[in-house]
Simulated assay, not measured.
Amino acid sequence: MSSLSRDDVAHVAMLARIQLSEEELDRLAGQLDQIVEWVGQINEVAAADVPPMSHPLPLTNVTRPDVVRPGLTAEQALSNAPDAEAGRFGVPRILDEE
């Protein structure tokens, strides 16, 4: 089916900026060739009447409905803050911009 050579693996490794030793090139050439063959076998099995799907089981949305509920007031939210100014949380400055 496919026959990936050491040169093919070396070229892909160069594009990915991966340095491989001579032994790694030999080993990976065989492994990648097997992977390409397995993908080819899967393509042979795939039937035209089977629709593409992202998951074998049907998924349903499990989020709860969006319901408005009472929350904290600004004063309650800021009551335990270590630093508050002008109705907002005070945080340390991280930029030296004025």
Rank of each mutant, 00 (worst) to 15 (best):
residue 87 G to I: 04
residue 84 A to T: 04
residue 73 T to M: 01
residue 56 P to H: 02
residue 30 G to Y: 05
residue 90 G to I: 06
residue 88 R to L: 12
residue 33 D to S: 12
residue 36 V to N: 05
residue 55 H to E: 08
residue 15 L to D: 10
residue 27 R to W: 04
residue 56 P to I: 00
residue 80 N to Q: 12
residue 88 R to K: 13
residue 97 E to L: 13
residue 76 Q to M: 04
residue 15 L to V: 11
residue 64 R to F: 11
residue 82 P to R: 02
residue 44 E to M: 10
residue 56 P to D: 00
residue 34 Q to F: 08
residue 82 P to F: 01
residue 69 R to A: 13
residue 31 Q to M: 09
residue 68 V to E: 15
residue 8 D to R: 03
residue 42 I to S: 08
residue 46 A to Q: 13
residue 49 D to E: 12
residue 50 V to E: 07
residue 65 P to H: 01
residue 41 Q to A: 13
residue 86 A to K: 08
residue 46 A to C: 08
residue 36 V to Q: 09
residue 68 V to Q: 14
residue 77 A to I: 01
residue 35 I to S: 07
residue 35 I to L: 15
residue 32 L to K: 00
residue 25 L to P: 03
residue 53 M to D: 08
residue 7 D to E: 15
residue 46 A to Y: 09
residue 12 V to C: 04
residue 59 L to W: 05
residue 83 D to T: 10
residue 65 P to W: 02
residue 48 A to V: 09
residue 23 E to V: 07
residue 23 E to T: 10
residue 13 A to S: 03
residue 40 G to K: 08
residue 76 Q to V: 03
residue 43 N to A: 10
residue 36 V to F: 12
residue 58 P to I: 01
residue 81 A to D: 04
residue 89 F to Q: 00
residue 90 G to N: 08
residue 29 A to C: 04
residue 71 G to E: 03
residue 53 M to Y: 06
residue 9 V to N: 00
residue 38 W to P: 02
residue 56 P to W: 05
residue 1 M to Y: 09
residue 3 S to L: 15
residue 68 V to I: 14
residue 28 L to Q: 02
residue 72 L to W: 06
residue 1 M to L: 10
residue 21 S to C: 04
residue 77 A to L: 10
residue 15 L to T: 09
residue 45 V to I: 13
residue 14 M to E: 14
residue 80 N to I: 06
residue 28 L to G: 03
residue 86 A to W: 05
residue 45 V to T: 11
residue 75 E to V: 05
residue 14 M to C: 08
residue 85 E to C: 07
residue 55 H to P: 00
residue 35 I to H: 02
residue 75 E to Y: 02
residue 5 S to W: 01
residue 32 L to R: 02
residue 40 G to S: 13
residue 6 R to Q: 15
residue 16 A to Q: 09
residue 83 D to N: 11
residue 31 Q to G: 01
residue 40 G to Y: 06
residue 97 E to I: 13
residue 85 E to D: 11
residue 80 N to S: 11
residue 76 Q to H: 06
residue 96 D to M: 07
residue 19 Q to L: 08
residue 19 Q to A: 15
residue 93 R to F: 04
residue 27 R to I: 00
residue 8 D to C: 03
residue 64 R to C: 10
residue 43 N to Q: 12
residue 49 D to R: 04
residue 17 R to D: 13
residue 47 A to M: 10
residue 48 A to N: 06
residue 3 S to R: 15
residue 11 H to C: 10
residue 93 R to M: 11
residue 92 P to K: 12
residue 16 A to F: 04
residue 31 Q to R: 11
residue 46 A to P: 02
residue 20 L to M: 11
residue 17 R to G: 08
residue 30 G to K: 05
residue 65 P to C: 03
residue 42 I to V: 12
residue 20 L to Y: 05
residue 57 L to Y: 07
residue 36 V to Y: 08
residue 17 R to I: 00
residue 81 A to S: 10
residue 29 A to W: 01
